[in-house]
Amino acid sequence: MTLSLFLEQLLNGVQLGVMLFLMASGLTLVFGIMNFINLAHGSLYMAGAFAAAVAQQATGSFVLAIVAGVVAAALLGIVLERAILQRFYTRSHLDQVLATFAIILILNETTRMIFGPSPLRMSLPHALSGSVPILPGVPYPTYRLVVLLAGLVVAGLLYLVIMRTRMGMWVRAGASDRTTASSMGVNVPVVFSGLFGMGAALAGLAGILAAPILSVQVGMGEPVLILALVVTVLGGVGSIRGAFFAALLVGVVDTFGRVLLTPALGSMAIFVTMAIILAFRPRGMFATHG
C-alpha cells in the first residue's frame, strides 16, 4: 500500500468514524440515561436523508436541504418519543426490542410507499464536487473533506455542550445515576425528550451527509445502526468520550478491512475486533456504569 493510498483511506476511515459518532452519540446517551435500547435509531438517519433529498429537489439548495433534513429527523424523533417510546422506558428490554423493531418495519414500509423502491439521488453543489490535493499530486474529494471537518466540529460542539453547560451537566448526572439526579431536582423526562430530539437531529445529519456519497434508499439506516451499536458497546454505554474514540476505531478498521480484504471479509473485520476487545473489556473501553 502506497503512502498516498494509505493517507486517502485513513481520511475515509476517520470520515466514516465521525459519521458513526453522530449516530452513536444519541444512541449512547439515550441508552445511558433511560436504559432504553432503540433499534429504530437508523430510521431517523434514513428520514434525514430522504427529507434532505426531497428538499433539494424542490428548492435546488444544498443548505436548505440540510436544514430540512435535520428538522425532519428531530421532529420525527420527538414525535416517536412522546407518542410511543416513552411508554417503554419502564418495560423490559425485550419489549423495547419488539416495539422498536416494529417501528423499523412501519417506517421503512411507509417510506417505500411514498417514494417507491428506486433510490433517490442527492447532488453536490458545484463548489464541493471537485477535489483538493492533500499531498502534492494526491487529490481527495472536497466533499468528503468537508464532511470530515463538519463532523469534527459537531462532535466538538456536542462535547462542549455535554461537558461545559448546565444542561450537559443534567444529562451526565442522569446518565450516571438517574434516581439520584431526579431527586436532586433534575427534571429527567424533560431533559430526556430534549436529548432524544438532539440525538435524532444528529442521526438525521449523519444521514444527510452520507446521502451524496451513498444513495438514499429504504433500509439504508440499519447497517449504520448496527455499526453504531458496536461503537456504543465498545465505547462504554453512556460515555460520549468513549463513543468518539470507538467511532474512530470502528471507522478506520472497517475502511481498511474493506480495502485490504474482499469487501465481505472486510466487513467482518470490525466484528472480530469487537469480539477481541470485549473478551478483555466486557464493559467497553470507557465504561461509566459499574
Partner: peptide, 25 residues
C-alpha cells in the same frame, strides 16, 4: 455472555451481522 442484558442484545446483533457477511464472503 460475559456481558449482560442490553449489551447482550447489541453484541448478538453484531455477531449476526458478522456471520451474515461471512456467508456473503
Amino acid at each position: 455472555l460475559r456481558t449482560g442484558g442490553p449489551y447482550f442484545i447489541m453484541i448478538t446483533l453484531a455477531f449476526n451481522q458478522m456471520l451474515y457477511y461471512g456467508a456473503v464472503a
